[in-house]
Design a protein around this nucleic acid. Structure first.
Lengths: 174, 174
DNA sequence: TCTCCATATGTGTATTATGCACATAATAGG
DNA sequence: CCTATTATGTGCATAATACACATATGGAGA
């Protein structure tokens, strides 16, 4: 706050509303009937709607415990506990005790689960490329940089006191 | 696409993955126990988890029909139909026939509902200001601009063919 | 106008998902 | 060692969700 031109007084309200609107739109798209999921389903592997996001998160952030996973998902951990158990029974994730803290039974992606998320990754990248095809490289790089910065700041501020933003579709956004 | 430096060959994959990670993080935060909701709850008005996002969307985009709402929420429209009915019974939204197309019974925010979303808006703006307080104005403006552009492009590409991205928490992101 | 089909909405019903109350095991501090 | 806290899990009641149907309207064309 000591620097030159910080965001302070201006007509931030309007900009914030725009930003919120954009976020709603983005989350909305992420909540759509999910071609990713559909694709996986067509591949013969049916995966429940609720399990899907968890699998992706486990692949991304695993090994990860039930509590942290639940926190991220915005669901009660008992719920997530069952879902992770289901993923385990489907051989999509594996569970193992954490040697440092033996209370936690971390979830890690399994080979079978990885194969599935790999498919999704491919589909996602395909979409990403299609979307940014017409973008100038500078804008693209800036979007990534600022989005990361935003994500960082927004998650760092947790527990501070302010409220949250609303997405829209509900807990999904797989 | 005729311009100088477009996003094409480079190491986009990595950047896309970063972007996806940031999105997951953001959605994750939006899925959190929701202080907004909690705040509303503390204000004496309890609102079901699933109803909350719909109310916000109706306020933002209303008048809006059940089908479009369901599409955005990523839920079956029969589900949304019931939820909108519930919102109506709570006097948070009003419904009215569309004169042009009498099949649709649009949902609009009611005074009572607006009062509620106003509270949320205030909380959200408070958080937004806190987060961007330390941002340089230029970065903030760019984030808004690029995020909007991204939202526009991503929603415009729907139905094209590519898959979607995954958020994380599941359908919520209220 | 009369069909035939697509679209918007709603209801019945069965299945899931979710969360609260409890319970267990392990860690942390005193 | 005793107590508080944290991570995980189970029983159970409730809410959410979706599929099968059903109704009403809109639209294109015979």
């Amino acid at each position: 706050m000591t620097s030159t031109k910080n965001v302070q007084n201006t007509h931030i309200s309007g900009k914030l509303r725009e930003l919120h609107g954009a976020l709603i739109e983005i989350v909305s798209v992420m909540n759509r009937p999910q071609r990713d999921e559909q694709m996986v389903r067509e591949a013969g592997i049916s995966l429940d709607r609720a399990l899907f996001p968890l699998l992706v998160t486990i692949e991304r952030l695993g090994p990860i415990g039930v509590v942290e996973l639940a926190d991220r998902a915005g669901r009660d951990y008992t719920t997530v506990s069952r879902q992770v158990a289901k993923l385990e029974s489907l051989d999509l994730v594996e569970r193992r005790g954490n040697t440092a803290d033996r209370r936690v039974r971390e979830a890690v992606i399994s080979p079978k689960g990885k194969a599935m998320t790999d498919r999704i990754d491919i589909a996602r990248e395909r979409m990403g490329r299609a979307i940014f095809e017409s973008w100038e490289e500078h804008d693209f790089n800036e979007l990534v940089r600022l989005m990361r910065k935003f994500a960082e700041d927004i998650s760092g501020d947790i527990g501070n006191g302010a409220g949250e933003t609303e997405g829209e579709g509900g807990p999904q956004a797989d």
